[in-house]
Design a protein around this nucleic acid. Structure first.
Lengths: 138, 138
DNA sequence: ACAGAAACGACATCCATTTTCATTAGGGGA
DNA sequence: TCCCCTAATGAAAATGGATGTCGTTTCTGT
């Protein structure tokens, strides 16, 4: 049968690399780039090809298992394992990169009306917040 | 004296290229990429080096004369001459690229409290909205 | 165990953006 | 107006993230 839809966060097949990637991604406290993740894997002796990291992250993104943002500074795409199934927004420290989920109920409610407000359909939103965390501020 | 701060939207010097770039950028109805702008200039016989376009846009961005977003599809940076001095948000048609300013008062007010809500300082926000405009929807 | 397909990984390629560096040309001061 | 200094320009090369290629490896259902 070809219609077996996978339900795991991994791809169709459970490979060592995919496992390692998911594990290290989950362990990362903050958003991390594909290259950063690749480096971190290498540091711990876990050898995974860079393309494989990119592919795994792309698949995780498709499976909505990660949140993705764009680094303001480098333009890199940064990934973070998603904890809840809801879509989330974060404040990111522009110095150290630390991130923290923010309650965006108000914005979400507002966003829900956007179709009426704008005359556009299927409006989706991306919200990125950056600031300086307490440790970095002084 | 070396402290002469320029007050024009252009750089320190008023060159033909800078003038043309600003003019074509202002004429563009929607967000446009550096390459797109460069191509548009070339089409009208206005020869400007690609690096020059990039540099002019970078300077305009620094001078807060343009709004900048990131194309979801291509990852390019897209620029648009800023009309008001206030910072603006837009809905962008994910099919044709048409953009339209959106009233985001509610979000702005919420954003003003972010410092208190999050424990981060100097929090800035970026909000990108995409949907399908009426012409493209059906 | 087997076969077919998915995943790997080293490397090539793409493409937006930046940098280099020699040349050109604003524009303030004499 | 003429000069000079330096910002601005542009062609070409470099950078760097991300994706594609393709031969090889390795899951997984049968």
């Amino acid at each position: 049968m070809s219609e077996t839809r996978g339900t795991t966060p991994l791809g169709a097949r459970r490979t060592r690399q995919r496992l390692d990637i998911l594990q290290h991604l989950s362990a990362a406290p903050d958003f991390i780039s594909a290259q950063g993740l690749h480096a971190r894997l290498a540091q711990t002796g876990t050898l995974v090809g860079l393309s494989t990291v990119y592919r795994a992250l792309r698949d995780l993104e498709r499976a909505e298992q990660v949140d993705v943002i764009r680094s303001e500074a480098s333009g890199e795409r940064l990934y973070r394992r998603r904890s809840t199934s809801e879509h989330q927004h974060y404040v990111i420290c522009r110095r150290c990169g630390r991130s923290e989920a923010v309650d965006t109920d108000i914005v979400e409610r507002w966003a829900a009306h956007l179709d009426q407000l704008t005359g556009f359909s299927n409006v989706t939103h991306t919200l990125e917040l950056s600031g300086e965390c307490m440790d970095c501020h002084l």
